[in-house]
Design a binder for these strands. Sequence first.
DNA 1: CTGAAAGCGCTAACAC
DNA 2: GTGTTAGCGCTTTCAG
Lengths: 353, 353
Amino acid sequence: MRHGDRRSLTGRGATAPRPTIKDIAARCGVHPSTVSRALSPAMKHLVAADVAERIQAEANALGYRLNMAAKGLRTGRSGLIGVLAPDIADPGFPPVLSGLAEHLNAEGYATIVVDVGTGGSQQDLVDSLIARGVDGLVLATVRLHDDVVAHSVGASTPVVLVNRVDAAGELPSAASDDAAGMRLAVDHLVALGHRRIGHVAGPQEISTGARRRAGFEASIADSGLSLGDAPIEAATAYTRAAGREAGLRLLGRKARPTAIVAANDLLALGVYDALAASGLTCPADVSVVGHNDMPFVDLVSPPLTTVRIAQREMGATAARLLLARIRSPDAANEHVVLQPELIIRASTARPRS
Amino acid sequence: MRHGDRRSLTGRGATAPRPTIKDIAARCGVHPSTVSRALSPAMKHLVAADVAERIQAEANALGYRLNMAAKGLRTGRSGLIGVLAPDIADPGFPPVLSGLAEHLNAEGYATIVVDVGTGGSQQDLVDSLIARGVDGLVLATVRLHDDVVAHSVGASTPVVLVNRVDAAGELPSAASDDAAGMRLAVDHLVALGHRRIGHVAGPQEISTGARRRAGFEASIADSGLSLGDAPIEAATAYTRAAGREAGLRLLGRKARPTAIVAANDLLALGVYDALAASGLTCPADVSVVGHNDMPFVDLVSPPLTTVRIAQREMGATAARLLLARIRSPDAANEHVVLQPELIIRASTARPRS
DNA sequence: CTGAAAGCGCTAACAC
DNA sequence: GTGTTAGCGCTTTCAG
């Protein structure tokens, strides 16, 4: 189908209204419902081949486009999926979104992404998405104990979580194995000879923050190290600035750690800032490990050793879970946990002896 | 308005259908149209205060949400804006999107973003957005000579361009002043003493690629340098890999340039790769300048000197242009050009004497 | 195989 | 101020 043979936008003059199935019906001398059938792949078999062809031709000539709002009103399904994103400018999120959209588009759904930063409360945004008739919701923003979760459980619109989970595990989710990621990081540092390893934790009301912290503590204990030699400072947000603050606090401790594992890459970059501010160098004085492997951390100085999480796959999985929920709303809760991978670069080295 | 006092999602049981104005009307003993009026801020003044209040209360109690599809079908306006993005994972785009969405949300519009990478042809995506009834379109993907532009001119759905322009300037646009940006870059290098300055150009079918190249040539000429000493290699795409290839070609020239200005930051990072592969160091052997100032280029090694473009403002401007177009479709074409700024970091230095 | 009729939820004339 | 009526564009029984 070439583009030239339909007049999509132009050609009808700037003011002509969009053609409807009625217009096509009139020109073909058939009833609108016949046009509807001919133009619907699923119902096309119910109409005579020659008639269907004539209708199709006329539709193309007119540049006809199905009105999804009308269809949605009639069928009760909009083909829209709402996505609540933490902050679209956060470099960590786009890959997830990309995996999500790709999967959803393939099934005929369009995604409408709302940045939580710019709007009102999370619940209001969810409500406005519901008002738009979304067939499902993907939340990438929930806190461990979050009102939206309570409101979403058993709701008529299916909801899945991505990148984060709720404390009670009441909603289906696709997330990375945070504990495994921290184990990878800690084991790597221990193998290098580090014995005093600090942690810049993420916000504790967010599952990644809490679980990575817990994973850190468990790994330290399992390595036979004392938790007393594993100081933790929690950052107030997943930002470079908050990482710097927490990093500074960690470096100010009496027994300065020889390595720091951060709950994510942004925090790790903040730790770089703290190191610079303290006149220390990485990895000579302090080794640093991040989490997520966001774009370009291989280019910073020094290139960041980090735990790579499967972001695109996480998005694709969330899409799959949501689609399953839409088809059978009462299916059991599935929590998909994706395995991370340690990417060793130049920010980690043996401690000074 | 607290969240507790409405039951939005839960509380009606998982299977109950969403309440409609009819339900509210029945419970309040009024006609549906009265409910419609009471719930519409613009029409509320037409209904008695006490009745309006009762209706509002009942709506809250029921967790009623306006059905936008139905409203849109009736009014012909969906409150949806379609955005065609080049690649959501490209770190340059999110700030634009963020500025766009913020502005649009404030006016009650939701944005539906489609990644051109994952779908079919650009025109098909536009058509599907039109089928969804979008009130306007923002294209961040057009090439200089692009069919979509021809199809969009005089179309019934307003279209604006962001970050890019079409060759004939037929559509309203918000973009950075590419020529001014290149002048900033070239002047800076000339002031440092460079006399052989190369350019890694972007794809020439894209306005930024073509205009930055033209701006580069003009600046070189105006600086009194010979174009013979200003070799240019065009990259095939705005990617780090393409930048590396083009950079390698530039560095392979007989008279190697002492400085390279890249058409964007991703290409500049590719030039870093090319330098590393050639055993050269930046800025000692070759200075590098990027364009866009995308997130974290201040952290790469060496921190990148680059031309900062006003991305959020670009998005906000595009939103403004689109809203203006929606209100008066026949307004004159406006091309807003935003001024860039040179951010000097450590990738540029005096040439070796 | 095709036509007729009804209605999804909402708004906007137009009455009273 | 409020009710009545009609219809946006589409799908889907139900007849024939």
